[in-house]
Design a protein around this nucleic acid. Structure first.
Lengths: 336, 336
DNA sequence: GTGAAAGCGCTAACAG
DNA sequence: CTGTTAGCGCTTTCAC
């Protein structure tokens, strides 16, 4: 492996000049720079990122801390992030935490030790201690989906409240009055926001929110299956169910299938998030789809900006919310 | 951030002793070791992995180069690998290459520059130059799924030939005679192996292999959709189709749905790999499921072993094949 | 058993 | 503009 010294020798300059030249500094004359560039090429010099990290105090890696990659929504998000990162010269270290706040903190500690350049983070905790612990890392950070804080980080997400409002409005306009909501994790920002969108839309339509029709499914397919079973076996069962994410949407659908309750004839279903393999799932789900590529793009924009300015004073936290797209399927029927 | 020097000072020893003690060497007396351990604890010392990497010449990161995380099979595999890695003190850098051999080589180069401890690699190339390039990295490596070589790496996979043989045997026993196979990427080890299993089983049953019923779907849902459309619109269409992976299985299923050809009444479908969200997909697919956790466990075992022995002479390449599990669904009907 | 010293490969003041 | 000089934090012979 060729080192800066080898290049320096060949180009007859010092190592520091090599370093400067290769990092594209204009403090090196164009001709020396070219000479150095050529020298580097002939010896096949490739900078050692580990040494760079040590000397600079930070690496060029980006950490990504997520809840569950096996959710296709998240997997696709990761792919986008990686594509962008690589193009900008960053590798990404993903860590799947199974939505466990303790693991998240552990991973963050590891990433901090690795001196990563920055972190894309989907937090699942929200206790004051947790938030403080996150803040303490003082890493360039963009928080996704679940706003916590106040912390020194940007926030990017879909407009959760809007997403569920869109779906709720849709089923109300189809004539539904008894509408249930299977929410995410109790207390989690996105879950409560989505629930709020549901409530407000129901209220706005002059309807009464039936608290018994609101269940927490923890963003988990199996839990949503259970919730749906409870809902569908009630004497006064709802005519429509809105689930707060894709896994829960499928869990709910499975419950209707197992129970033999026809969807959409007997119960309408609508969900936030794109449904994986929606093509072969019948009925086709009506859903509020999050713009994955856009979210990834803006998140990375924010993060790279923060990385660039890492030595400046704390940057004013920015926030960007995206409007989901309402995709009409065959899972909602007109009522009455 | 506390450094070895801080610890050394407090424990009144030299930095080298600290280093030795903390790495659990028995060249340090038990009492000094304890003293150092205490000192480290009081100053909150955490070793800097970047500095360790530079000094040692390799980091404690493990690279994972895969084709497509958005395939749930791969996502789950990643989760297993990460869980094991973390437990053993390794972080993992995943890279999704979209099955592009050129990108794979690029990623491998990056990982090499990062001096990762080792790599888990699913290669999609197979040209001699490609194989040589891979070999040149001389990284502790475990190759998954697609055997290439000969190279100095272990190989772990499901017994591809067996997987398709199991499915083929199954449909033959159900009375099918005109059986089609939608294979993976032409020339790719796993694809050809799976195809071979198909051929051999057909032949063994005394049937004729109809070459027109073998199509390459490139492990891609959309391509498999196209292949299935071709197959189902033939005058002498097959009564059963075996697909070489989950995405293609779903692609085929979608084609039957779109075409209105009833599965399994008019055509039977069976696939290798677990089908994501199989619970809500009707009919339930008959499939040969790969033991993900086992594959992950053995891969990591092999890799960690190679990492440990990284300074010894080339290790005899090992190989481990797993037997898939045949899961009977409702997608295959008895014929005649 | 423990310490001194020499790096790993690169960066970044600070001179010149 | 370019070179000198210190490190970044840790590991690892090699003496003692």
């Amino acid at each position: 492996m060729a080192t800066v010294r080898d290049v320096a020798k060949i180009a007859s300059v010092s190592t520091s000049t090599v370093s400067l030249a290769l990092s594209g500094s204009d403090k090196v004359s164009a001709k020396t720079r070219q000479r150095i560039w050529d020298a580097a090429k002939t010896v096949g010099y490739v900078p050692n990122p580990v040494a760079q990290s040590l000397a600079r105090g930070h690496s060029d890696m980006i950490g990504m801390v997520i809840g569950d990659v096996s959710n296709p929504f998240i997997a696709r998000f990761f792919k986008e992030v990686e594509r962008i990162s690589l193009k900008r010269g960053h590798m990404v270290i993903v860590s799947d935490t199974d939505t466990d706040p303790a693991r998240e903190l552990g991973i963050l500690r590891h990433l901090k030790a690795q001196h990563v350049a920055g972190v894309l983070f989907t937090p699942y905790g929200n206790s004051p201690e947790y938030v403080e612990a996150v803040q303490e890392f003082k890493l360039p950070m963009v928080v996704l989906d679940h706003k916590i804080g106040p912390i020194d980080a940007d926030f990017v997400a879909t407009d959760h409240e809007l997403a569920s409002a869109m779906l709720t409005e849709h089923v109300i306009r189809l004539g539904h009055r008894r509408i249930a909501h299977i929410a995410g994790n109790r207390g989690l920002y996105s879950a409560e926001q989505r629930l709020a969108g549901f409530r407000k839309t129901i209220a706005k339509a002059g309807l009464q929110v039936d608290e018994d029709l609101i269940l927490y499914g923890e963003y988990d397919g199996d839990r949503a299956y259970e919730c749906t079973m409870r809902l569908l076996t009630r004497p006064d069962r709802p005519t429509a169910i809105i689930t707060a994410n894709n896994m829960m949407g499928l869990g709910a659908l499975k419950a209707t299938m197992d129970l033999g309750v026809a969807c959409p004839d007997e119960v309408s279903l609508a969900t936030i998030d794109d449904v994986p393999w929606g093509d072969v799932i019948r009925p086709r789900m009506t859903m509020a789809v999050q713009p994955i590529a856009d979210i990834a793009r803006v998140s990375m924009e924010f993060l790279l900006e923060r990385i660039k300015r890492r030595n400046e004073l704390p940057i004013q936290p920015r926030e960007h919310l995206f409007v989901p797209q309402l995709v009409i399927g065959q899972s909602c029927a007109r009522l009455g």
